[in-house]
């Protein structure tokens, strides 16, 4: 519980700045050519259900963006903003980062425990010429790991009509920025209460699918994790409903 309380402070800031960003993004896209242009409002309700046994999810991060943006790419080094989310569960830097291709960014409220669903709503006012290219990124950390995150980047919502729902299972990625040592003091979640973000990159330095955790019950005696922290794919279900 200590972990959840500590996160709540960070979270409030993340929500505030994310809403500022979305206001900002909306107005700049209207003023691009100096003329008054038509805008479309796209609103979505997003639910993420945690399918793991004992891996709380850090507060969800969602972004609406064009196809020019992606939050990560397999085989490419993680951005520092992604590293902060993947190592500490802190999504504020990722959500606050300015990009001409990101229309809006929102954080969920609080961590999502195993077996629980978390929800958020995200909305963007988009120049109607751009509304045929609208993508979603959804991301969250598995907090009882060194640097695992779940999510999808570039989910195409361009053809989703109001009232329609799409559903995806989510894979788990490894940000490649911190070795999967599982040692005491290196895992921020309740299994350890250890360090979150550390700028040093002592792993492969590319994003890939996560290999899973080992844990003390599988013979890794120095690990602070045990068999309850194991996971397989998928780790969550993502449901997106367009509401406007």
């Amino acid at each position: 519980m200590k972990y959840l309380n500590r996160k709540a402070g960070t979270l409030a800031i993340a929500i505030l700045s994310a809403s500022l960003l979305s206001a900002c993004g909306g107005s700049s896209s209207n003023n691009d050519d100096g003329n008054k242009t038509d805008t479309d409002t796209m609103s979505y309700d997003i639910t993420v259900t945690n399918l793991t046994n004992n891996q709380p999810l850090s507060p969800l991060a969602a972004q609406l963006h064009s196809s020019e943006y992606s939050a990560w790419k397999v085989g490419t080094a993680a951005s520092e903003n992604l590293e902060m989310l993947a190592e500490e569960g802190d999504n504020s830097a990722l959500l606050n980062a300015q990009s001409p291709y990101v229309y809006s960014a929102v954080s969920g409220v609080g961590a999502i425990g195993p077996g629980v669903g978390g929800m958020l709503s995200i909305k963007a006012d988009i120049n109607s010429e751009m509304s045929s290219d609208i993508k979603l990124t959804l991301i969250s950390m598995l907090v009882n790991t060194n640097d695992a995150f779940i999510g999808k980047t570039g989910v195409d919502l361009s053809n989703l009509a109001v009232g329609e729902t799409v559903k995806f299972t989510l894979p788990t990625y490894d940000s490649g920025t911190e070795a999967n040592s599982e040692l005491a003091g290196t895992i921020p979640g309740p299994a350890d209460g250890g360090e979150g973000f550390n700028m040093a990159r002592d792993d492969v330095d590319y994003v890939a699918r996560h290999p899973g955790v080992v844990g003390v019950d599988r013979g890794y005696s120095e690990s602070v994790l045990n068999s309850t922290h194991g996971f397989d794919s998928p780790t969550a279900v993502l449901t997106i409903t367009r509401t406007e």
């Binding site: 894979p171 788990t172 070795a179 999967n180 040592s181 599982e182 699918r209 996560h210 290999p211 899973g212 080992v214 599988r218 013979g219 890794y220 120095e222 996971f231 397989d232 794919s233």
Partner: peptide, 20 residues
């Protein structure tokens, strides 16, 4: 996790995977 003994020559922290 032993590079010189144990039951396996592969590293349980590195040489593992989940599908796909």
């Amino acid at each position: 996790t032993s590079l010189t003994a144990g039951i396996s020559d592969v590293d349980s922290r590195i040489h593992r995977w989940l599908n796909p």
